[in-house]
Nucleic acid binder design. Structure first.
Lengths: 187, 187
DNA sequence: ACCTGAACACCGTTCAAGT
DNA sequence: ACCTGAACACCGTTCAAGT
């Protein structure tokens, strides 16, 4: 184990990942796998050789995209608790709304350890939980609010963005965060 | 037009509707149409003769279920504005969460006049709009809140119920309604 | 006027054969 | 060790033939 992969295998893996990323952005996470393989210039069996199912492919694409998101989340430690909370939720909503159907996979992945998306979901939930804990300590957010509430809010916001509009989703998210606060802050 | 249908046609229509209702509850709105036809004891072509596509079938099932929902909505005129708002949202969330996938069809149907679900969506949105307007007039809800916000909240709540839990969805909805209020009321 | 079900189209997934 | 692509399974939808 840990042997270097054959050069063509590595190239196919990378190309498949890049084409999957593009296809998911354009057509959603339900994009045709046959089409992704064709765009990558390989047979469908090659795709399945590298990624045993659709979730594995989505998971691999996500791992690449997540770096920037998690870095941004860590950087929010410098902001005020309320600003960090609002900014983090906005960031994740935008991230999760990148591909039609992604919010659903994320919502389902956090409680399913067998899911190839589980690690990404758990990490996102952890960051949110930390931000909420800080806001509660500061007396800003109601003590009853949990990290799970924030995770659910992010997914609901991303889903609303897919099925209504970015504006509608932003309004809903903003109202909900107001509802999480101990004292209403105007916008 | 308006002629009485043949007796067997009417019977098939009713049986298909009943089996579709059951199948959607058990397996979601994506249930196999072939399976519904089989359970109804007719060929697949007969199903398509009565319902040109899946949405038409879902729409017909909904029209039957909606009677009770709309009546309950009208009855809420007797409650206080806040209680009416909370109760209405809870009612619709439960209604929309009856079948896996229904929240998505509802969210997509309100802006699509060609959808067989459009009438049901529009009616639901109207009732919500009326309840919100009364709450705003009473000085209870922020003036900026719209009927569209309430409709989006209902769908997001139903979707969260499908992908997290009824408890999680109820918490999220409750926090959001708190955020819609001018003055926070404790629960 | 309505029903039947074979036929078509499409897509995810597997695996025996190749290199 | 990896790739190929035919084959299989499944399902939504149509339509010519029947009653």
């Amino acid at each position: 184990m840990g042997r270097r992969p054959r050069a063509d295998a590595r190239r196919n893996y990378d190309t498949l990942l890049a084409e999957a990323d593009a296809a998911f952005r354009e057509q959603g996470t339900g994009a045709s796998l046959e089409g992704i393989a064709r765009r990558a210039g390989v047979a469908i069996g090659t795709l399945y050789g590298h990624f045993p199912n659709r979730r594995a492919l989505v998971g691999a694409v996500l791992r690449e995209r997540n770096e920037a998101l998690f870095d941004a989340g860590a950087a929010l430690a410098d902001s005020s608790p309320e600003k960090a909370l609002r900014r983090w939720v906005d960031l994740v909503v935008e991230h999760a709304a990148t591909d039609q159907g992604l919010a659903e996979l994320l919502a389902d992945g956090v409680d399913d350890e067998a899911s190839e998306l589980h690690a990404s979901c758990a990490r996102m939930a952890d960051i949110g939980e930390g931000i909420v804990a800080r806001a509660i300590e500061a007396g800003l957010v109601r003590p009853a609010v949990t990290g799970a509430d924030v995770f659910a809010l992010m997914n609901a916001g991303a889903w609303t963005r897919e099925h209504a509009s970015a504006e509608q989703a932003a309004r809903l998210v903003s109202y909900t965060i107001d509802g999480l606060l101990v004292n209403r802050s105007p916008a």
